[in-house]
Design a protein around this nucleic acid. Structure first.
Lengths: 205, 205
DNA sequence: TGTACATCAGTGAACGCGCGTTCACTGATGTAC
DNA sequence: TGTACATCAGTGAACGCGCGTTCACTGATGTAC
């Protein structure tokens, strides 16, 4: 049944969004194409009119999920002043841990290493964007630690903290919460002192 | 073919070790029972004389891998003085990233959340042991951050750093290395100052 | 604007395949005597 | 110690199942005239 161009685009969007949600929830191997297509309101055969394979859909879903998550992050952080604390409030929280359609970085970190290079590239790009965003709100000095090193560590640590918190949520919920609050507090301490801004310097002289 | 009790025990060990290696490498879903049994020198049917299911073997493999990895960690760290740096040298390195039979915490963090509670418990136990080991070598004071919070964060961050380094190794090897060195340096800064020991106090008075 | 028809997104049955698991069978082990 | 036999770890064919993918077909769309 041929459909309008509009419908084609809508169907593709539904497909990608359904894939993003289900893959985040169950993993790439944990969800079938039939289930994804059904969630998108289509039959499983329809997928192959839009994508050459399940893996290609997964890559598109990953990009989509990252875009969505990143825009929510920056919106939330900027509303609250774009400080390191505002980012951490969003990223390291029970809400993020329990969120079905949360950040794809945290959902599939250890999965990615075993998949196509396309997914590795997607992941790396998303990771770098996140690191850039964090670095932008860090002070320049923190002992001998540069802002880039701290930003890289904060993002990697956030990913680890959420992954751990999710992994142990079933068996040790209290410890899971503790990991989140500890990581939030400790990573927050890496903000560093802001080097005097140019306007502040000018005021002094 | 009935075999001696010794052989039974050996076969079981081979089975668990092969499973630990292959699951770490390919993930629980990425490796089949036939492949595991073949690697252990058995046919696939033999598994069910020892374990009720693949998932049960996976749990045993996880415990085994953790035990093995933890004993190597403590041995290596104690040889080098059991400081935070000696732990980080072992845990956050290219060697650890590329190691096939590395720490199971890092291999399957994001996998665990989607599996049985048995695996979640195993993971939580391993995580806590690691946190205890790290906390034992931390100084008591580091600004307002308690040693428990810092230890929890260091282990979670280590897991995240290795997961990220593995995920992006294929597409951005330089960035992968940078994540490791950054995490090593920044987490090392969380060691904290040692509160004066009792003997030192006594010397003062 | 109205008509004829080529296009192609979507359908759903069917495909081969590999999976985890089962089971009748084998034959050396380990035990009872 | 020697013999008879029950045990059961291991074998490998077979099972049902769900997977990703293919394909002949459908029928509304969108275009050519």
């Amino acid at each position: 049944v041929k459909v309008t161009k509009e419908t084609v685009a809508e169907n593709r969007t539904h497909l990608v969004q359904a894939a993003a949600r289900l893959i985040r929830e169950k993993g790439v191997d944990g969800v079938g194409v039939a289930e994804i297509c059904q969630a998108a309101g289509l039959t499983h055969g329809a997928l192959y009119a839009q994508f050459p394979s399940k893996e290609a859909l997964a890559a598109a879903a990953f990009d989509e999920a990252f875009e969505h998550s990143f825009s929510k992050l920056t919106a939330s952080a900027q509303k609250n002043g774009a400080s390191l604390k505002s980012y951490l409030d969003f990223l390291i929280s029970a809400r993020q841990r329990d969120n079905i359609i949360g950040c794809p970085l945290t959902a599939s970190a250890s999965d990615i290493a075993r998949r196509d290079e396309a997914l590795s590239s997607s992941f790396a790009e998303g990771f770098e964007r996140m690191v850039d965003a964090i670095e932008a709100v860090l002070g320049r000095n923190n002992g001998e630690l540069g802002s880039r090193d701290r930003a890289l560590t904060i993002v990697a640590a956030e990913i680890g903290a959420i992954a751990v918190a999710r992994a142990i949520a079933k068996s040790k919920p209290a410890l899971s919460n503790r990991v989140l609050t500890a990581a939030h507090r400790v990573l927050g301490s890496l903000e560093g002192e802001q080097a005097p801004s140019r306007s502040a310097k000018r005021r002094k002289t």
